[in-house]
């Protein structure tokens, strides 16, 4: 095979100066003419294996790692859904109702597991973050269950006392389920960015239609990523 020095060094994930030096020193089965490298694919693959080095010839698809933090709120809510008129009176009732309403949970045992972990988390410390909003979530990611990452939004008929930090009763829940802690933190930070904003809270208090809420969230997220870049 024939490759340029830069290409071959990216195949081996090494700086080109290192590859060039190894060629010069005769430590790697590659011959160089000018800046073109000649080598046999099988010999180099074997060599890379022996020396514990990565080797991805061009053409061979490199497994792209899924960017876990690229998830955004609107998609997560799209998966979780927006629900109205929850009628529970206590924390447990509300959570129980919410969990049984959530779509995208396939087995009953998963549903049960989610319910238990949400309640356990509430008992430890309330997820009521103030201004009538609560963000119930499991303490550790429920990766052993098949529940996909999602946020489900629930509007309550009657505000319930969640023992929130500001003692205000809660009228809206964002149930956050994530497959990994990174996604959990990522989504939570985005959500908290929205919830710190007065206009967003005003919108929530008006119990908006699903489309309105999603549009608003997309708008906020655009602002967030605009600020980043």
């Amino acid at each position: 095979m024939e490759l340029k020095i830069d290409e071959i060094s990216s195949c081996l994930e090494l700086p080109s100066t290192t590859v060039e030096r190894w060629v010069r020193q005769g430590r790697i089965p590659v011959k160089m003419i000018g800046d073109t490298c000649l080598f046999s694919d099988t010999a180099l693959r074997k060599w890379a294996e022996e020396h514990n080095l990565p080797y991805h010839p061009p053409g061979e698809q490199q497994q792209e790692k899924q960017e876990e933090t690229s998830e955004n709120l609107a998609d997560a809510i799209g998966r979780g859904g927006i629900y109205y008129h929850l009628s529970g009176q206590t924390v447990e009732e509300v959570i129980g109702e919410a969990v049984s309403a959530m779509k995208g949970i396939e087995s009953e045992s998963d549903r049960q597991a989610l319910y238990e972990s949400l309640v356990a988390r509430e008992q430890m410390m309330s997820t009521g973050i103030g201004n009538g909003v609560a963000v119930p979530h499991p303490r550790t990611p429920l990766s052993q269950t098949g529940i996909p990452t999602q946020i489900a939004v629930f509007f309550l008929d009657r505000p319930v006392d969640f023992k929130a930090v500001d003692k205000k009763p809660v009228y809206v829940l964002f149930v956050l389920v994530a497959a990994s802690s990174q996604q959990h933190l990522h989504l939570l930070s985005r959500l908290s960015y929205c919830l710190r904003d007065a206009t967003f809270l005003n919108l929530l208090s008006e119990v908006p239609a699903p489309e309105t809420l999603i549009t608003k969230i997309v708008e906020f997220e655009a602002r967030l990523s605009g600020g980043e870049g």
Partner: peptide, 13 residues
């Protein structure tokens, strides 16, 4: 990281 690679490359022919 590099040191280990280098050592491996230098010691095995």
């Amino acid at each position: 990281d590099k040191y280990r690679h280098e050592l491996m490359v230098q010691t095995m022919h």
